[in-house]
C-alpha cells in the first residue's frame, strides 16, 4: 500500500463506485466457476497453485476447499465445496468500499480490487457472504481472486482450473454452466448442476456466478 494516495484518482473511483452501486455493471458475458463437489478428492492443488500465482504467504487464502463430513459411524459421508471469489452479479463487497477500489469488469463480469486504491479497511471482507476478500497483513491490503485476469487475457484459464488434477474445476460463461450447455469434464455425463448447495450462503444475497455438482447430502431442496 502506498503511503500517499492520488486524491483525484480516489475521487474518480468513489464516483464510479457510487454509480455502480445504483446502476450495477451488466457484463457482456459473465464468467463463473463450476466445481464437482463429489468427484473432488480435496487435494488442494488449486489452493497451492493460487498461493504461488498470487505470491501469498501463509494466511490469506483466495481459494478455499471446504471439507464437509457427516453421518454416524459406520454410515458416513464426505464431500468438498470449493470456492474462491464468485464474481457475483450483485457483489456485496463493491458498495462497501470507501475508496471505490472494487470494480466489476464489463467484458467478463470479473470483480477485482484496485490495490492502489485499497486502504485495507476490511469492510468488503465483512460484507462478503462467501469469505472471498482476504486480508493480507504483509501489506495491509485486502486481496482476492480475480480469476487470473492476466491468464484470461492471454487466452488461457486461471491457475486453479489448470491445477486441478481431477479436472473437476472449470470456468465458463455462467449461464452455460447453469444450463448444462458448457462442455466441460468437470460435469460428468450423469451430473446436474446446482446454483445452491448446503454449506454456502443463500445465493439470493449476491447472485454468485458459480455452479456445483452437488453431493446427495449437499443438495438443497
Amino acid at each position: 500500500m502506498s503511503d500517499t494516495k492520488d486524491k483525484a484518482k480516489i475521487k474518480a473511483a468513489v464516483k464510479r463506485r457510487k454509480r455502480l452501486t445504483y446502476t450495477p455493471v451488466k457484463p457482456d458475458m459473465q464468467l463463473g466457476f463450476v466445481h464437482n463437489n463429489v468427484d473432488c478428492i480435496g487435494c488442494r492443488a488449486c489452493e497451492i497453485a493460487c498461493k504461488d500465482k498470487n505470491g501469498l504467504a501463509a494466511g490469506p487464502r483466495f481459494r478455499r476447499v471446504q471439507y464437509i463430513e457427516g453421518g454416524t459411524y459406520p454410515d458416513v459421508f464426505a464431500y468438498k465445496v470449493n470456492m474462491s471469489c464468485n464474481h457475483c452479479e450483485s457483489p456485496a463487497c463493491l458498495p462497501t468500499c470507501p475508496t471505490g477500489a472494487i470494480f466489476k469488469r464489463k467484458a467478463d463480469g470479473i470483480v477485482d480490487i484496485d490495490s492502489t486504491l485499497c486502504i485495507g479497511c476490511r469492510r468488503c471482507e465483512a460484507a462478503c457472504p462467501f469469505g472471498a476478500p482476504q486480508f493480507d497483513p504483509s501489506d495491509n491490503l485486502v486481496k482476492k481472486c480475480n480469476m487470473c485476469v492476466d491468464e484470461i487475457e492471454a487466452g488461457r484459464k486461471p491457475y486453479c482450473v489448470m491445477a486441478c488434477m481431477m479436472r473437476v474445476l472449470d470456468i465458463g460463461p455462467v449461464e452455460e454452466i447453469w444450463s448444462g450447455e458448457l462442455e466441460t469434464v468437470a460435469i460428468g455425463p450423469n451430473d446436474q448442476v446446482s446454483r445452491q448447495v448446503k454449506n454456502m450462503s443463500n445465493i439470493e444475497l449476491t447472485k454468485p456466478s458459480i455452479g456445483f455438482v452437488a453431493h446427495s447430502k449437499g443438495k438443497v431442496k
Partner: peptide, 15 residues
C-alpha cells in the same frame, strides 16, 4: 460515457 469511465478498469493487476 459509462464505457469511457469503465475503460480504465481493463488494467489487469492494479498492484
Amino acid at each position: 460515457l459509462v464505457e469511457l469511465q469503465t475503460a480504465k478498469e481493463a488494467k489487469a493487476f492494479a498492484y
